[in-house]
Design a protein around this nucleic acid. Structure first.
Lengths: 229, 229
DNA sequence: GACAGGAATTGAACTAAGTGCAAGTCACCC
DNA sequence: GGGTGACTTGCACTTAGTTCAATTCCTGTC
């Protein structure tokens, strides 16, 4: 049992690793202790409880996200970059979606990110409530895109825990879907073959939707002519 | 203990009530039994396990959603109606977001709904992959909008469970946010007053974002060569 | 160099929750 | 009225968050 060296930072980083692998329920204090080479309860000296640990982990994620240079780009490029970076982050850490849906989290990391978001959209010409709504719309769109990845993580966790062959389980799911889609020709035409990556269905949705959403927002700018360049 | 009358349907309905009140973690088999006036384990005769119960509950929700008449409306009105109805449903049952993020769910209810969605977007002129992406983009946007309501439910659950004054907890959260926003003028200007409804921040975001997104999608219709490229 | 005191860690134990199991209970049919 | 099968129950096992008293380690002080 290595004595010293257990820091809050280490704990948060290990927690993020476990969360990435198995989602919000996959993080257990005992598992965390095992990974850190200490007793599960040792963590409680550094962190109040699991909820707060998750809060810390969430805020750590926000810190990871790059903020684009506001001077160098037009708002559209900056907004796209921020949304894309955020999407990459949430895809890598889909438990963030679960965390935001179950914890009231507002830490310094998110404040920093939010401020930059508002800067981009205000520079575009959005003012007041409209800026709030534009920022909010893009934000929830990005978050919604994490539902698929989160489900994939949850599925993998189930497979790892209950044993069971991934191929077989997925095959059965596809078979069930095929069965369900039988009465709907539009769905039958879209069924993924069992060899496909399940996530392939979602590929491209984000880029396509983001571009469309930003187009629509841009068209709603109070002063369109000056913003177009 | 009333003997007969325990049906799967009753169980699912009671489960939905509990889920609405307290979210995914708020549904416990013991609590469900108590509500139904039977032992917790009685449920297991009708339902394989909690996971499957959630699956049944999810599919029941899909069945609730109305499907607009395709003949009567143009695609834009139909798409708006479907998204709005879906939004209303997810807002009423925010645990659906959690369920979709942790369970692979594809039941008859969702198949029915998806088919209608594709019908609307194909009628608009979207074809193939583009239809998939348009449908997917709107869908994840609607889901993302449920994060706020889900967090609110989780907060209320915490308050109810741990005791504690809602006013006070919210007041502290606002105070913390104010503190965090101190270094960011854009955020300070947007702080909700403690008397505001927290959800008021999100009000309007959905309608605004949906209209913008549909505008953007419409501009991407294959037969529309009007938009600058 | 011994030691006091605080920092950090540990194992045992309590609680809540999902669930398997074997025994019990009821309704209905011969 | 007794058997059969559908349904229900209490008990107990397991996992997980958390508390707590006890223990160990480090550090500064005499």
């Amino acid at each position: 049992m290595p004595r010293d060296g257990l820091t809050t930072d280490q704990i948060v980083r290990a927690a993020i690793d476990l969360l990435d692998a198995d989602g919000l329920d996959g993080l257990t204090m005992r598992g965390l202790g095992q990974r850190l080479g200490c007793a599960a309860t040792a963590v409680y000296w550094h962190v109040e409880n699991k909820d707060n640990l998750v809060r810390l982990a969430v805020d750590e994620l926000w810190r990871e996200v790059r903020l684009p240079d506001l001077e160098a780009n037009d708002w559209r490029a900056a907004a796209t970059e921020m949304a894309t970076d955020l999407h990459a982050m949430v895809t890598r850490h889909p438990w963030l979606l679960q965390a935001l849906a179950t914890h009231l989290v507002y830490g310094p990391g998110k404040a920093r990110h939010d401020d930059h978001l508002f800067a981009v959209y205000e520079r575009a010409g959005f003012v007041g409530e409209q800026a709030d709504r534009a920022v909010g719309a893009v934000f929830v769109f990005v978050l919604g895109n994490a539902v698929g990845p989160a489900a994939t993580v949850a599925l993998n966790r189930r497979l790892r825990r209950d044993g069971g062959d991934a191929e077989q389980v997925l095959g059965e799911a596809v078979a069930r879907a095929t069965d369900l889609a039988a009465s709907y020709p539009r769905l039958s035409a879209r069924l993924p073959s069992p060899t496909d990556d399940v996530n392939a269905v979602f590929a491209g949705t984000f880029e396509f939707g983001l571009a469309a959403l930003l187009d629509g927002l841009q068209a709603r700018l109070p002063d369109q002519e000056t913003a177009a360049s």
